[in-house]
Design a protein around this nucleic acid. Structure first.
Length: 327
DNA sequence: AACAGGGTCAACCGCAGTAGA
DNA sequence: TTCTACTGCGGTTGACCCTGT
């Protein structure tokens, strides 16, 4: 596995990009597409390595990037997806419209992680510090195993979906580049159009991307939703894809039933752990509403944990209650 | 006004995975 | 099968900015 030596070359510039460099890169990609990143700098007249150009493009210059403050919904999405996926920023980024993995990673490290720590929640496990003490009981153990199983399954599904989204994005970009000559369009006013991804206007500020397998709705004000796409699906849907992948080959139909049971609506799900977390930094909150005595706390922790994961699954689960097509 | 310390974020580094010869 | 070239990803760094003293 030879590692790319591109950045070791002498004479290549490092550090912050100048507006002139940005302009060169932007102009070149608009004109030719990025093609091979390695050869791009030379062709574009940049004294940079290809890697640096790619990073600048993907994290800053790309037209479909939203900058500025994260909304509460975005924060919630990040926290919930992080609980499910861990530090897989690119996978998380596929579920946040117009945010880059780098931006999400930075935001997590500088804001969200600290907030969790401040509240006594382990940012890695997303468990309240007290929860560790409860883990020795049988019920908690089985609950933990159940939740872990659930998380693994969802993780595999999301991973597959993220991969699919990436592929579609690529196709979309290629299509965009191919169409550029016919219909010149400034990069920064780029409008999504592709045979694989469409972006209908929902008229309420929401943006929707439709992949061949599912429709991902992004909203400033609403939870992320993934819905089965229209009737003309010639490609297996995301869930089927995930289920057929090696990472989730052990998930059988019985697991789906099991998932359904676990995922049945629970009172207070929408006000789960994360929502409470986001509502304020008031610090000394308990996991459940009200005070718990010692005898009931174990059960309550289990309930809270279940609610937490349910809220996560509500977020990522594309399954409307009656959509038998998904399973 | 000057300095120190902390926070933020763009950019870099290096590993891992993959495609193709 | 092996090697090389290349891309993608996550962790880390460091310059810049802000705030408090």
């Amino acid at each position: 596995m030879g590692r790319s030596p591109c950045c070791d070359k002498a004479g290549l510039k490092k550090g912050p990009w100048t507006p002139e460099e940005d302009q060169k890169l932007l102009a070149y990609i608009e004109e030719h597409g990025h093609g091979s990143w390695r050869s791009l700098p030379e062709k574009a007249g940049l004294q940079r390595c290809g890697k640096s150009c790619r990073l600048r493009w993907t994290n800053y210059l790309r037209p479909d990037i939203k900058r500025g403050k994260f909304t509460v919904q975005e924060e919630q999405t990040i926290i919930q997806l992080h609980a499910l996926l861990g530090n897989r920023w690119s996978a998380i980024a596929t579920h946040l419209a117009k945010r880059t993995d780098n931006e999400i990673k930075n935001y997590w490290n500088t804001h969200l992680k600290k907030r969790l720590v401040k509240m006594g929640i382990d940012p890695v496990t997303h468990k309240h510090k007290n929860e560790t003490l409860m883990s020795s009981t049988g019920q908690s153990k089985s609950a933990a195993a159940t939740l872990s199983h659930m998380a693994q399954w969802e993780s595999a599904r999301l991973e597959a979906e993220a991969r699919l989204a990436r592929e579609s994005k690529l196709l979309h970009l290629q299509h965009y580049q191919n169409n550029k000559a016919a219909a010149p369009n400034h990069c920064l006013s780029h409008k999504a159009s592709s045979t694989n991804w469409t972006k209908p206007n929902l008229g309420n500020g929401d943006q929707q991307l439709e992949s061949p397998t599912s429709t991902v709705t992004f909203s400033e004000n609403h939870h992320l939703m993934i819905m089965p796409s229209g009737e003309n699906n010639s490609v297996p849907n995301v869930t089927e894809f995930a289920l057929s992948s090696s990472t989730s080959s052990d998930v059988k139909d019985s697991d789906h039933d099991w998932m359904r049971q676990i995922n049945c609506p629970t009172e207070g799900v929408q006000e789960g752990f994360t929502s409470l977390l986001l509502l304020g930094d008031s610090g000394d909150r308990s996991l459940s509403t009200g005070q718990k005595d010692e005898e009931t706390s174990d059960c309550s922790y289990y309930e809270d944990n279940k609610n937490y994961w349910n809220s996560i699954l509500n977020l990522v689960d594309s399954t409307p209650s009656d959509s038998s097509t998904m399973f």
